[in-house]
Simulated scan of single mutants.
Amino acid sequence: MITLLALGPSVDVTYLVDEFFEGGTFRPTAVYRAAGGKAVNAARAAVTMRADVAVVAPLGGSAGQFMLDDAVAAGIRLVPVWATAETRTCISISSAASGLLTELYEQPSAISGDELARLHEVADGLLAERPGWFAISGGIPASVPIGDLGALIELAHSRGNRVAVDSHGPALAAALVAGPELLKVNRAEAAEALGIEPQADAFDGVFGMAERLRAITGGTVVITDGVAGSYAVDERGRQRAEWSGDFGRYPVGSGDSYLGGLLASLDAGRTLTDSLRLAAGCATANALVPGAGRFAELDARAIADEVVVS
């Protein structure tokens, strides 16, 4: 079972336009709206791969109600903690002419102290009845104390759950010392957590960062690096996953889909090697179509079969 905490949920809106440039007026050729934010995107991907998933999220206003309705329609068990602040909206604009993606992301909506306490309470209840993985994914609202991720990790460990973290910034640095069993970050986030510049050497540099992070967490560390693939370090050593096919032009949510596929595979008892393949398959399948985490299971598995792990 996989339980995710979404501290920064959002309504994700994707506009497809023929062209886009600053200062213009454009008519979208298609619009996609969905419950989103990193944790919800990861949950959608994991559900696509047939995992048993639940998500706890603070939701507010009409946007929060839309999120709840859309998640239920997608087969996601979303457990809301109703909050005062309206749930944010994040916008992506994909230009057919340039192939470029423009992203406008609101900051995560504020959470009060009482609402945060309620989130802890609801998460604890789910963890008590759902053994398996607890994942904290996404940005942390400025109103949430930096050390809160560490407290949540300790809560999950006290219930016997393994913990996965995919976040960034000061909150991530504080969470590392709590010892999550799985850390999944991208290359820039890894460098930020270590207080260094991203290395020029994409091979030894990324593996070096992964090993330094593992020295802090004691768990498995996976660093994604876009089309260059992903790098993993665990107690058995280094592994790199690569794929050389079509990478798609809709990357929003690919990192989240990677996490969802990775957790779905690990939760099913598969090896890290097989899980890296499925994670890459989910991330790539996500980028082939608009809308975060809205890929087909068969596409993800077909790509995963072609992923090379060395």
Rank of each mutant, 00 (worst) to 15 (best):
N41Q: 09
H120F: 13
V144T: 07
G61Y: 01
L155D: 03
P58N: 06
G160N: 06
V47L: 10
G132K: 05
V163C: 05
L101I: 15
V55N: 07
S62F: 11
S109R: 11
A123N: 09
V122T: 11
Q107N: 13
L119T: 08
A83P: 02
A54D: 00
A57V: 11
S98V: 06
P131Q: 04
V40Y: 00
S137A: 15
E115Q: 12
T48F: 00
P80M: 03
E115L: 04
D114Y: 02
V72F: 11
A110S: 15
A97Y: 08
E154N: 13
I136Q: 11
D148H: 14
C90G: 12
P131V: 01
L59K: 02
L152S: 08
A110W: 01
A97E: 14
I93C: 09
A71F: 04
V55Q: 09
V165C: 05
Q107D: 14
A57Q: 12
Q107F: 04
L104R: 10
S167R: 08
P141F: 00
I76M: 10
N161H: 10
V53C: 10
V40F: 00
A85N: 07
N41M: 07
A46L: 10
A54T: 04
V165Q: 02
S94P: 00
A128K: 12
L119G: 09
C90P: 04
V165H: 02
G147H: 11
S94A: 14
I93L: 11
I111D: 02
A97L: 15
L149I: 10
S98T: 15
A42Y: 00
S92C: 13
L68I: 06
R44S: 08
A156M: 03
L152K: 09
G160A: 08
E115G: 06
F66G: 11
I153K: 06
V55E: 06
G147A: 13
T102Q: 11
A97I: 03
D70L: 03
A71K: 07
L78D: 03
A57D: 12
L104I: 14
H157I: 09
L155Q: 14
Q65V: 08
A142P: 00
G132N: 06
P131T: 03
T89H: 05
F134M: 12
G75F: 02
A43Q: 07
L59Q: 03
E154D: 15
M67S: 13
I91Q: 09
S109P: 09
A74S: 13
R50N: 14
L119S: 10
V81K: 01
N41D: 13
V81H: 02
E154W: 04
V79Q: 09
A135L: 04
A164P: 06
